[in-house]
Design a protein around this nucleic acid. Structure first.
Lengths: 220, 220
DNA sequence: TATATGCATATTGTATACCAAATGTATATT
DNA sequence: AATATACATTTGGTATACAATATGCATATA
């Protein structure tokens, strides 16, 4: 009788999540060639769930499958970064307006909580956690837009951008997402100040762009 | 020495393309449950390429994989349609501006050619072909933006919308994409009239929205 | 040297058999 | 009617074998 109540976790889901984590944090280096055999041994998996995870991650632009050649972690380059941020800039304004209008009390509280957690994670120098919370912050925002397609797009772009965030941080430990801006944004959302939210959100993105461009443009 | 020269076509690619075609044209009815076994026999395939195609199509929101239950063609409902069109509206203006600025002579010619082909396809009552050409038109536009992420997003949204186009057409044979608007747009692109292109493109989307809403809102 | 050719090898792509896990349905029980 | 149980079906995953293709290396040719 139980119908989709508790989703069983497939092996392919587990490895997908794990690989995505490794890719986003750059623990799997951009451009790295991945072989099925090594991952099969390393994670004690069969080929089926592994290959299915590959398909999904490739569809998410995190892997590239070159037929009969192999799987490669999608490389990073500055041009791609510019395109992601350009794309983000085009929609973040509309997204912020929608989110501001629809955001629930619960979501507002969640934003505050994320900022608080982020502050301590930042103080502890836990960049991985900071990046996670940054993602969660933007997820609340994306959810609040109430538009599924916009939501998925925003989070897709954010994930792509995350890799550049890590790349910048690895070169310059001072290059971290701005907690202060998140705090400010959370406050503006609570005030339901649509115009200010829109402006602040656009600035937030542009600040992230310039901050990362500085760290990324050292060679490469 | 030959390196990635001619991409070999995998079975999983062939079935992915075929299934996508069937889904977009509604030959595979929204909500339909698909069984591996039947498709394996019907297309004389093994499970592996079939299941990998499923993964990719699910990632494209065209299929839904419910673990241990089955694969379902993603259902259609009016609310989803509204969300797609809202999402499209948010980016189509920026996209049009970029495309207008970057469009090459070759692409301008291609637009004219697509309009011409569309006219004859429409005269012949070949709706499938009209829909194909509509997609190609928007693909040229999306390509011309020069932003990969924006491009992929636009085409993703267009594909989702395509299913609603077919749904509307099946209820009302007079509900077809406006060739005249495409013709007008092609002319404006050629004139490099950014402002007019932007306005016309927005109207094009809104017209499509209202046209389809009329056909879709009869029950369901 | 440079290029071309052919073969051996490794890896991916596909097919198949088998088992485990979950679901849906039918039946039985209260 | 509602709940519980048993069974059949389907998918998820493993293991294995084989086919198809790419790569590397050795050799041959200019």
């Amino acid at each position: 009788m139980a119908k989709f109540n508790q989703i069983p976790l497939r092996e392919s889901d587990r490895i997908e999540v794990e690989l995505r984590r490794l890719i986003l944090t750059l623990e799997l280096e951009p451009g790295l060639a991945i072989s099925e055999a090594s991952l099969m041994k390393q994670y004690n998996l069969g080929r089926t769930p592994l290959r299915e995870a590959f398909q999904r991650l490739a569809e998410q632009s995190l892997l590239q499958i070159i037929p009969h050649h192999g799987v490669v972690v999608t490389p990073l380059n500055v041009f791609e970064f510019v395109e992601v941020m350009d794309a983000m800039s085009m929609v973040i304004g509309s997204a912020a307006v929608l989110a501001c209008k629809h955001m629930t009390q619960t979501q507002l509280d969640k934003l505050d909580e994320l900022v608080k957690e982020g502050t301590s994670a930042s103080a502890a120098g836990d960049f991985v956690r900071v990046a996670e919370l940054d993602y969660e912050f933007h997820r609340e925002l994306a959810d609040a837009t109430g538009n599924r397609y916009l939501r998925d797009y925003l989070l897709h772009l954010h994930r792509i951008a995350t890799r550049f965030n890590f790349a910048a941080w690895k070169r310059d430990r001072n290059s971290t997402p701005s907690l202060e801006e998140h705090r400010q944004l959370a406050a503006l959302f609570r005030q339901r100040d649509v115009d200010q939210v829109k402006t602040a959100m656009r600035e937030h993105i542009e600040n992230a762009r310039t901050r990362l461009m500085g760290s990324l443009s050292n060679s490469d």
